[in-house]
Amino acid sequence: MSLVTLRDIETAKSRIEGFIKKTPIVSSKLLNDWLGHEIFFKAECLQKIGAFKARGGCNTVSWLVENGQKPAKIVANSSGNHAQAIAWASKQFNIPATIFMPSYSSKVKIRATKSYGAEVVLCETRDIADAKVKAAAAEKFTYWIPPFNHEQVIAGQGTAMFEALNEIKDVDAVFAPCGGGGLVSGTMVATRGLSPQTKVFGVEPLNANDAAESLRKNSIQRLKSIPDTLADGVMTMAVGDITFEHLKKLDGIYEVEENRIIYWSQWLTHLLKLHLEPTSAMSMDGVCQWLKTQKTKRKVMVVLTGGNVDNATQNAIWKEDCLMEIPRL
């Protein structure tokens, strides 16, 4: 197994910069004053397709074409943003794409995937979608791009933090959501290469904590059922063998309860004036858990992963008002 390197991320950055956006870094003075620390947010919710996944998808498709391996068809499995990313990236190179998605995926993400020209096959469960994509990948001249367990996908995702740390220096810690581990793996490689003293943390829902369990038991643990979490971007059933090797090098992983995901979804939307998925906002609770252990002022970078939210999720986020409780450590 070959792990991703900083050189892979640098190459990916050059490969995709004509396709993706260099997203802004934003902050809230009010939030910084309340918490007593400097928090910066890499706004990948403003990326192409509304999520960081455009980076990994575009890098992998571009890599195939660059190496003379342009397939007749691309297939992928995803519950949302990776589906859109592969549909969009495939369209850039006029390659037909078929995406296998669980039927419980966000309706906004299903419609968006179709709008980029991909064929969408809805499956009753994530496991069925995974089985169908494996069968489809066996067809001649077909290439399967998985949502996280692929070196080029990881390298592409790592370009977000590569950009961020070249813009903001002397960061004490970086935080990113962890589903299958592709973003956190790329974030870890970019951070270790550019700023070795900076700590790297993953964040996942307590209700979908397979990565944390895997690290505790030092073996990949699989969720027994579809996780009940509002953070639909991290509903993967297990991390991959490649991402797990990267995750072992993290400084830690924080688990977040659903009420805190809702709390930070409301507050970050309010403070940053950005449209954010619960998965994006979730990391902020991990930030607070870490800051409570710190005795000096810290500078933190957070990846805001996406902004694709359907009506049902919005209603769940705003069912009760959390803005009466001001963020404090």
Rank of each mutant, 00 (worst) to 15 (best):
K73I: 07
P227R: 00
K319E: 15
A97L: 03
G180T: 06
L247E: 12
I86S: 01
G202L: 02
S2R: 14
I99K: 06
N209L: 05
C322P: 05
Y104W: 12
E151H: 12
L250T: 02
A54Y: 08
E245A: 05
P196G: 09
D33N: 14
G202P: 04
A136D: 10
G80N: 10
D172C: 04
N94C: 10
L6E: 12
M161C: 04
A43E: 02
I326A: 08
V133R: 02
S225V: 12
E38Y: 06
P146I: 00
T113H: 04
E258D: 12
C322F: 15
A155P: 04
K13W: 14
R126I: 07
E163A: 02
L31C: 05
M101W: 07
E163L: 01
A238H: 13
L323A: 07
M324W: 08
F244Q: 07
C288S: 02
N166T: 10
G18H: 14
K53G: 08
I253P: 01
A131Q: 14
Y143L: 03
M101G: 05
P102T: 09
A316D: 11
A160D: 03
P205D: 08
Q157W: 01
V121C: 09
A131D: 14
D310Q: 08
C178S: 14
N218M: 09
I99C: 11
E119D: 15
L250G: 04
K295E: 14
G117F: 07
K29I: 11
G56T: 08
R15W: 10
M188G: 00
E255C: 10
N308H: 11
S90P: 10
Y143K: 13
T159R: 00
N311C: 11
Y116I: 03
T5I: 06
S115E: 14
P71A: 08
Q69F: 02
I99E: 02
T313R: 14
E245T: 04
